[in-house]
């Protein structure tokens, strides 16, 4: 008898009971919202109902995304130091003209707003190196973690852990490691070498900016590639194995083509993130030495907030130009994602 109660009664108090309660609550909620939704549908027609459901998100996006973009555009065509758009004089394309006034776009020193172009150049350099390094290291790590190695779960966690850290924390940790009396220099001197002033040499500073960024975010992209690798059917590999195909050829002819959609997503995401880079590099190098690691976003921040005359107009114009670049990159991402889906 007791057994009968256990076998029949216990599950009733378990997950299915919880599910029943949830379903009941959902039904009650639906019953509550049903009459007003019917009234709205009668009023505007069934075809317009999707917009009603989209409205909360649209309001959110409107307030926190589209409105700031609009204000930013207004700032970019107005001058002065006043904060309220109504108090700012209209200056037309003056700020854009200033930013784009260059003898040669390849030489920042020939530009009227040379610091902006130094930022553009640095961001481009950072983006190229970061993209190559990030994709390469993420791919290699994903390939290794996809193999049946010992402690695979542990290593997956280890590689993903830095993603959870705040960019400022990441930058501070590495700053402590790399400074004059930091851990790395201690190791170097213990090994009989000389101290290297990493933040005084432009080459080293850019190298570490890229390295730290790759270290911090590689886990995320590794995860995307790992998911792609695990989605590749095993039987394709088994067929290649039976044919005696060499490992490199397997990678080149099977893994890479089938992983290509994921790789594209990773490439575009890394590209967008690299163009937006600010916090990590700013905390790590402060944009130095000189302006060797000063990125576009740091230029915008400095122009708008760090100078005594807070030039919101010029910073706004630079933001609009950066926004345009990001918009194009996002379109590319959308195009590639849709093509992948189709």
């Amino acid at each position: 008898m007791t057994d009968t109660i256990r076998s029949h009664g216990a599950p009733a108090r378990g997950p299915s009971a919880a599910a029943a309660v949830t379903t009941g609550s959902a039904n009650a909620l639906m019953r509550l919202t049903d009459p007003p939704m019917r009234a709205v549908q009668r009023l505007i027609g069934a075809l317009r109902m999707p917009y009603v459901f989209l409205l909360p998100n649209l309001v959110f996006f409107g307030l926190f995304v589209f409105l700031p973009i609009g204000i930013n555009i207004v700032f970019s065509v107005t001058g002065g130091t006043a904060l309220f758009p109504s108090e700012r004089p209209y200056v037309g394309a003056e700020h854009y003209a200033r930013l784009l006034d260059c003898g040669s776009y390849l030489e920042a020193a020939s530009c009227r707003e040379d610091l902006f172009w130094r930022g553009v150049g640095n961001t481009l350099t950072f983006t190229v190196f970061q993209m190559v390094a990030m994709v390469l290291f993420s791919l290699v790590t994903a390939l290794v973690l996809n193999r049946p190695i010992r402690g695979r779960g542990f290593f997956r966690a280890v590689y993903f852990f830095p993603v959870l850290l705040s960019p400022v924390v990441v930058a501070l940790i590495w700053k402590w490691i790399l400074q004059r009396d930091g851990l790395l220099n201690a190791v170097l001197t213990t090994a009989g070498g000389e101290k290297i002033l990493f933040f005084v040499d432009p080459g080293w500073a850019m190298f570490w900016a890229v390295f730290v960024s790759v270290w911090a975010h590689m886990g995320f992209y590794t995860l995307i590639l790992l998911a792609g690798l695990q989605a590749i059917p095993r039987d394709v590999y088994e067929a290649a194995e039976m044919d005696g195909t060499r490992p490199w050829r397997v990678f080149h002819r099977i893994t890479l083509p089938l992983l290509w959609p994921n790789l594209l997503v990773v490439l575009v995401l890394v590209l967008i993130r690299s163009v937006q880079v600010f916090d990590e590099v700013f905390v790590l190098t402060g944009g130095g030495p000189g302006t060797a690691t000063m990125m576009v976003v740091q230029y915008i921040y400095t122009t708008a907030f760090a100078n005594q005359v807070q030039n919101f107009g010029l910073a706004g114009a630079a933001s609009v130009l950066l926004g345009a670049v990001l918009f194009v990159l996002t379109l590319i991402q959308l195009f590639l994602t849709r093509r992948r889906a189709s």
């Binding site: 610091l115 004059r180 002033l197 933040f199 005084v200 190098t285 402060g286 944009g287 130095g288 030495p289 000189g290 302006t291 060797a292 690691t293 000063m294 740091q298 400095t302 760090a306 100078n307």
Partner: peptide, 12 residues
């Protein structure tokens, strides 16, 4: 030493 005036950028 460049570590003070050279190591950061702008007005920092």
């Amino acid at each position: 030493s460049k570590e003070l005036w050279g190591a950061v950028s702008g007005t920092a």
